[in-house]
Design a binder for these strands. Structure first.
Lengths: 210, 210
DNA sequence: CCATAACCTGACCAACCGGTCAATGAATAT
DNA sequence: ATATTCATTGACCGGTTGGTCAGGTTATGG
């Protein structure tokens, strides 16, 4: 019988409370921006007194940083889809699938990320200069390989990546606009699938991979 | 000799001051968000005492609304490029040119717009439901016509428009990220041209217009 | 030149926000 | 049982913010 460290009641409560705070914070930061968000509102949404927030996260900035870091990790994890395949159709196709899924499941996170970058990345500038830059260069190399192998047309890898990011994240960041243009209704399952197919079709055909 | 209403000194000063305020406000709102922006900072950047701001714009919200409306107008005006041509290559090509130019010339405005929509369009929701919806439907019809005429492949017009918006605005809204990945340097003239060409090439080919 | 209206501004205020802290309650180890 | 550590909370505080206002300045029309 394995001695799996059973979580003490304290640990468990702590994890649950922290989770509740992070979920509330993600939503409030996304909807109001860093400057517009208030610790009181986050506390109310998490069902806690404000002082308790400062026990878990010393400052508003620390809480915000944690939210952004969590998003960044989800965002990077989805990028693995690009590596598992050896042809652009499967690789980029899977990447678009993954990113569209994130836009659907984590719209608040995507908005917080967008807001952070739009404001000059005051909190995650170091991530941009290290992790993101390395990741981007690696993926650009993979794309150049595909081009050299004649599996797609010669397009600038960076601009292709920007297009992938822009197009997929648009469905989260501008979701409100899309919903308004969709007669005020959120996209249904079928409409999400159609959106994903449209994006894949146009881009994969546009780079000559189909 | 035409009696062109020569502007009185008052009118002229008023227009100049208002312009200075709007330029400062656009920048501050873009960099700090609505919540993070302060009237004091806008006043300092415009070289005015704060109280003077409230003489021109009664509230922070009124000033913000004006900034967003001005952007919306620029944004709509660029859309005329889509109408002047009768084939997708020239129409969509010109539209991409125009939108990329706006991303370059009005990055702050684009960010304010993005931020407004991301936060649920509290100020310009009515514009989304009226002007933008009508414009979108009209353009979707034009695209359907092109498809019916066999000038491009059958793609969902809405998703194509979203891709156009997303891709072009990305160069403004995520300009900081792009700059970081470009070794910290802003895109040069040639790089902007290359970006525009990349976007046009992939999308026009992706919809089968080339 | 004068009266009037438009414009400008320093000083001020109430409201709110992030953060602190001392006191209390609850879980854990001995 | 009880000492000790961890977790919770209401009350509070200094600083900042959007907005006001009375009084001064400048342009304009007669």
């Amino acid at each position: 019988m394995p001695e799996t460290a059973r979580p003490s009641k304290r640990e468990e409560t702590r994890r649950e409370t922290e989770r509740a705070i992070l979920i509330a914070a993600e939503k409030v930061f996304a909807e109001a921006g860093f400057g517009g968000a208030t610790m009181q509102l986050i506390a109310d949404m998490a069902g806690l007194p404000k002082a308790n927030l400062h026990y878990y996260f010393p400052t508003k900035e620390a809480l915000y940083r944690r939210v952004v870091e969590d998003i960044f990790e989800i965002w990077l994890r989805a990028a693995e889809a690009l590596d598992t395949a050896d042809c652009p159709v499967r690789g980029i196709g899977a990447y678009i699938d993954a990113k569209m899924e994130i836009s659907r499941r984590h719209p608040f996170g995507s908005k917080v990320w967008a807001s952070e970058v739009m404001h000059g990345a005051p909190v995650i500038q170091d991530y941009l200069e290290t992790t993101l830059r390395e990741w981007t260069e690696g993926r650009a190399q993979a794309i150049r390989r595909w081009i050299a192998d004649g599996r797609m047309r010669p397009v600038d890898p960076h601009h292709l990546l920007y297009m992938l990011w822009a197009t997929t994240q648009h469905y989260a960041d501008f979701g409100h606009q899309i919903e308004t243009l969709n007669d005020g209704r959120p996209l249904s399952d079928e409409e999400w699938a159609a959106a994903t197919e449209s994006v894949k079709e146009i881009i994969l055909r546009g780079i000559g991979a189909i």
